[in-house]
Write a protein that binds this DNA or RNA. Sequence first.
DNA 1: AGAGGTTCTCGGGCGC
DNA 2: TGCGCCCGAGAACCTC
Length: 276
Amino acid sequence: MPELPEVETVRKTLKNLVLHKTIENVTVFWPKIIKYPLEIEQFIDALKGETIVDVGRRGKFLIIYTNQYALISHLRMEGRYGLYPKNEPFDKHTHVIFYFSDETELRYRDVRKFGTMHLYLKGVEFNQPPLSGLGPEPFSDEFTVKYLQTKLKKTNRKIKPALLDQKLLVGLGNIYVDEALFRAGIHPERLASSLKRKEIALLHDEIVATLSEAVKMGGSTIRSYVNSQGEIGMFQLELYVYGRKGEECKKCGRPLVKTTVGGRGTHYCPNCQRIR
DNA sequence: AGAGGTTCTCGGGCGC
DNA sequence: TGCGCCCGAGAACCTC
């Protein structure tokens, strides 16, 4: 579900909801979500009495900071957070509840149960999985044309799976990778190492522009995404190719196609994005 | 019925 | 042969 623009929107809305709240207790209904510490009791005990001091993001990971800890949360396909009054019933897809000292609680819901949480003492979180080894943020100075060129040159993968690799660059998922490739006029099955300097420069700029525009629109809602305040995104209205199979290309008018690349559904315009 | 916005693990292939 | 890296396939789970 969420790629960088959606996670960034969740970060902002979640921060508004939970900043300065103190966790009194935690219930975990589906223990497999908690990846670290290995013992669920340690996870729960550590958070008792902690106050939320910030909500950050690294790639597609949310980071909920308390006095002492960093809670790393990945929403995967369908994870979502919401603040509820204590007396409101919760459904079978609610897997973790953080009870606050006021009359509210933060609930983590995840229909597919793919999401993950890691809890570390603050300061070491970036040196541990799952944050260790991640590539640069697309909006950082580190993500330059030169960097992208160097990385793409030395891989044998197709460009789409290469860009989806969070070790190369964080934030792109199936929607935005298709969008960025279309906007740069690059076929998703091109070998990454075959891209010319000029194409890489354009691709770099379109990755940044696409993600940036999507953040401004609160992300894309395709079927289930909502932010922590239950609001949908608006960037789906701006999409060029994702989910538009058979519809007219907004640039050339020819029908868009959908194939599978690297095991992922892939949308593109056969006219605007040529193999070579 | 199979695909869906994600990423981890596993095993094969290849090079040193 | 052994090791390590790279890459693709499959798995984790539920809904429509």
